[in-house]
């Protein structure tokens, strides 16, 4: 018998309840939740879809660490250890383990979509890119939108600055567009102001929790910060631009 402690409640409040079940070899935490749901708590709300770490629905906090419940094996925990499962802290609770992540989709809408230059099409009407130019961006395309990074980012989680920072998931989205060889939008001013790249203090919790192991901070946020420096903070580049009226160096 293994002990689980699961949050039960909704936006008006709730409490942690204990459940004991038998755990079989090879089970993941989501399996255990399902067994509890089947055997003891038919009304336990949990969001999931693929059970393969690819849909990003099953994000919860297991023993305080933001994780995908379908990719967390039970043998990560000691045989006597109580496994506590809570909903994501950063987003409003709907019921039990299910939170309302709508805020994230709203952020996505603020981003100007990919805008390629139609003149760059070749004679067959295709856009051609070299692999080495999009390697970087493809890393960001691995995102499964589990929002674990959004949940753990202290700016959104603890500092309550959802109005000032778009969050790591959308910083990689922006990086993927900003670094795209075909995109024509000038995104740097918005990355600094509207999306708040300067709010991130590169403490890397987003990178630590990403189940796709995307190097969010090193490969997306820091490179964006450096591009913002080029545009807004570097005094030599600023002078150069003033003197020679050039857009870039």
């Amino acid at each position: 018998m293994r002990n689980f402690r699961i949050f039960r409640g909704d936006k008006s409040g709730g409490k942690m309840l204990d459940y004991q079940i038998e755990v079989d070899k090879g089970m993941v935490v989501l399996d255990a939740i399902h067994r509890i749901q089947t055997e003891q708590a038919n009304d336990l709300a949990v969001r999931w879809n693929c059970k393969a770490g690819k849909c990003g629905s099953c994000s919860v906090e297991i023993n305080g660490i933001p994780k995908l419940s379908c990719m967390t094996r039970m043998n990560e925990y000691g045989p006597e250890e109580t496994v506590s499962i809570r909903p994501l802290k950063t987003f409003p609770i709907m019921k039990d383990l299910v939170t309302d992540v709508l805020w994230n989709y709203e952020q996505n809408k603020k981003i100007v979509p990919f805008t390629p230059d139609p003149n760059l099409k070749n004679k067959n009407g295709d856009y051609v890119m070299m692999q080495e130019d999009i390697d970087r961006i493809q890393e960001f395309r691995k995102c499964i939108e589990c929002f674990l990074c959004q949940n753990v980012c202290h700016i959104l989680r603890d500092q309550g600055k959802k109005d000032k920072f778009v969050g790591p998931r959308f910083m990689i989205q922006l990086a993927g567009l900003e670094m795209h060889p075909l995109d024509t939008q000038d995104r740097i001013p918005a990355i600094k102001e509207k999306f708040g790249s300067g709010m991130c203090n590169i403490t890397r919790c987003c990178t630590d929790v990403c189940p796709e192991h995307i190097q969010i901070t090193d490969n997306a946020i820091i490179p964006l910060k450096e591009r913002v420096v080029d545009r807004f903070y570097d005094p030599v580049i600023w002078l150069w631009r003033k003197l020679f009226r050039r857009k870039s160096v």
């Binding site: 906090e61 305080g64 660490i65 933001p66 802290k89 753990v152 202290h154 700016i155 989680r157 603890d158 500092q159 600055k161 920072f165 708040g196 300067g198 709010m199 991130c200 203090n201 403490t203 919790c205 630590d208 929790v209």
Partner: peptide, 18 residues
Amino acid sequence: SPVACAVKGVSQKHYKGE
């Protein structure tokens, strides 16, 4: 700010990052 991931750090009312 924060002291570790998913651990409450010093919370600043007017957190401004960098």
